[in-house]
Amino acid sequence: MTNRYALNKGVLSRELVLLLALLAADSMDETAEREPEMFADIDWKLVVQLAMHHRVYPFLYPTISRMREKRVPSGVGECLQNEYRRNTVQMLQLGGEMGNLSGELADLNIRNLFLKGPVLAQDLYGDISLRTSRDLDFIVPIDDLTRAEALLIRLGYVKEEEFETILGDWKWRQHHTTFHHPVNNIKVEVHWRLNPAPSKEPDFDQLWERRRISNHFGRSVHYLSKEDLFLFLAAHGARHGWSRLRWLLDIKQLLQQQPDPGALTRLLDRYDHDDAGGQALILAAGLLNAPVDPGLSGLADRKKAQRLAELAMFYVERMVNLHNPPLPPEVERHYRYYQPAILSRGQQLVYALGFLYPYAADAKTLPLPKRLHFLYFPLRPFLWA
């Protein structure tokens, strides 16, 4: 570990420091013998709350259960064991549905790549019970989106919401639509982009060309290459402020697979995700002792990446869900600054120019016939004002 991955952990609670140690250690017994004080004066109820919030409890339970000395209260182990078993059942259900959906899509010749869920757990952890997933995410070419949605409806899924859109702005302002199955209670997100604009990213054909295939789920399941997966996870984690340690644990597990450093740095540079990638490396190495290939260390040396990592520590030290309003005032203020800060200059320009593109609200402010919707472009500044 070098100073490039040093982070200010002085603001973290003892409980969070212990949780990080449990997630990072190769042998927790050695850590406990070397630093027994780490287990003293711990609010174990808070440890469980942190593990649940950060969604790392299925990974945490085996670590605790393997410890030789019982430094963790039995009640904590029993609670985590119950949650671990519940998650295993849920992941098995999701895995079965993922294989079914992959087969149904393939039968319709709809190319698809699963982004997260059980295939990610199997690939990164070698065991689907060690990671949580609340839904299934897959991406399809935008030209096949209508057919993919029709398939889900035929299978009993219900679309949760319809976008208010004008002049096709949904294609880049949004990146997925959500379906829910009322019987099996499974949620599915269908993507046509990895991330919302102004994020730059590979097109579907490029992702498909580099895809990997898993045969653990009954039918062949296609998913992202290691390098594309890192780009996706880094951009996703940055957008959410790394407010859940599970995302950093994913990064650590992926780094242990040793993605090609040259291919990865070129990919991140091409799509303006150098700083998001550097932020992910700094946080994963600094908090979870993730291994970083020397060929990737230049990403962590970037000044902006270091600044973004420190900004993300604001969310790591708090149990917040950035997409579950209302947010506490101090979190709201911080996020208003953080959100544009994670964008490159080019992305910031695209983001600003996006305000000049008409919004669906403009049609409510000044209703016009659809054939005249092009007039919302020159009218946009006045309608916004």
Rank of each mutant, 00 (worst) to 15 (best):
R4W: 05
Y5N: 08
V17R: 15
L19A: 05
L23Y: 03
A24Y: 09
A25H: 12
E30T: 14
E30I: 14
T31N: 05
A32H: 09
E37A: 14
I42K: 00
I42S: 03
K45H: 09
Q49P: 02
Q49G: 09
M52Q: 06
M52Y: 03
M52F: 07
H53P: 02
H54T: 04
Y57V: 08
Y57P: 03
F59L: 14
G75Y: 08
C79D: 08
Y84M: 07
R85I: 11
V89A: 13
L92T: 15
G95S: 01
G95V: 02
G96S: 02
M98D: 00
G99L: 00
G103E: 01
G103H: 02
L113R: 06
V119E: 03
V119R: 02
L120H: 03
Q122N: 12
Q122S: 13
R131S: 02
T132E: 10
T132Y: 02
S133V: 02
D135T: 04
D137V: 03
P141D: 02
I142K: 09
D144Y: 07
L145D: 01
E149P: 00
A150Y: 00
L152P: 01
I153T: 11
Y157H: 07
K159E: 04
K159P: 03
F163R: 10
L167K: 00
G168Y: 01
G168E: 03
D169T: 15
W172R: 09
H176P: 01
H176M: 04
N184D: 14
N185M: 14
K187Q: 12
L194G: 02
L194D: 02
A197N: 10
A197G: 15
P198S: 00
D205R: 12
R210D: 15
H216G: 10
R219S: 14
R219V: 11
F232R: 04
A234T: 05
A234D: 10
A234S: 13
A234Y: 06
W242F: 05
L245E: 02
R246A: 08
W247L: 10
L249E: 14
K252L: 05
L255K: 07
Q258G: 09
Q258C: 13
P259L: 08
R266Q: 15
L268M: 14
L268F: 15
D275V: 13
G277P: 14
L281H: 09
L281V: 10
A284R: 08
A290V: 12
P294Q: 11
P294L: 09
L296Q: 03
R302E: 06
R302F: 08
R307P: 00
A309L: 10
L311V: 07
A312F: 13
Y315D: 13
Y315M: 12
L322G: 13
L322A: 14
E330L: 13
V331R: 13
V331I: 08
E332S: 14
E332G: 08
R333V: 13
H334E: 12
Q339H: 10
I342A: 07
R345A: 10
Q348T: 03
Y351T: 03
A352G: 07
A361P: 00
T365F: 00
T365V: 05
T365S: 01
L366H: 05
L372G: 01
F374N: 05
P378W: 11
L379E: 06
R380W: 01
R380P: 04
R380C: 08
A385W: 02
